[in-house]
Amino acid sequence: MNIFRLLGDVSHLLAIIILLLKIWKTRSCAGISGKSQLLFALTYTTRYLDLVTNFVSVYNTFMKVVFLAASYATIWLIYMKFRATYDQNHDTFRIEFLLLPVTILSLVANHEFTLIEILWTWSIYLEAVAILPQLFMVSKTGEAESITSHYLFALGSYRGLYILNWIYRYYMESYYDLIAIFAGILQTVLYCDFFYLYITKVLRGQRLQLPA
């Protein structure tokens, strides 16, 4: 464990908690893409299958349980409890256009052709693009509540911090995983325009407005 990965996990945890609190407190999931949340739940489910098979550490197990529970709780809030506030008309990204290439790529580019490894690879590639429906929805609605933009900033930062973690681990532990690194860079790059808007606008108290 190193400071970059710890900060990354904390940022990830913060993002998930911000989202849960936003929906629970405002009793509304307006502006939130249910499709992205579904993709995140799929990501954690396929990646944390080893939750019960190999124990890494208390921290590792605790975080996996929290991420799984929070992502399913968020889906329940969006599609069940506050279903009436779910903005279906703006959450229209075709996720099949994500699932197909991710599935093909995980079958072609993986470290080992075993079920558990393919599922892990699939989850790594899926996570890289899982935010696209949400970013698409923000661009369609043309704006995002500031709490939603804080959520996106924390979520985008987490994998950016993981990139620093991979640099650290490469030099200090001569460990690297090209699949995770490639997907992590793509995932972080997808947030770039949002990061720019967040830094230049939201931090100055303005609303996040995307050029429609």
């Binding site: 990965r5 996990d9 990830h12 990646r47 080893d50 190999n54 890494v56 550490s57 590792n60 975080m63 996996k64 991420f67 470290h111 892990w120 993981y162 973690n165 001569s174 460990y175 690297y176 995983d177 090209l178 995770a180």
Partner: peptide, 10 residues
């Protein structure tokens, strides 16, 4: 690449 046995990253 020396693959970490088991996944220690989240």
């Amino acid at each position: 690449t020396n693959r970490a046995t088991g996944k220690d990253e989240l």
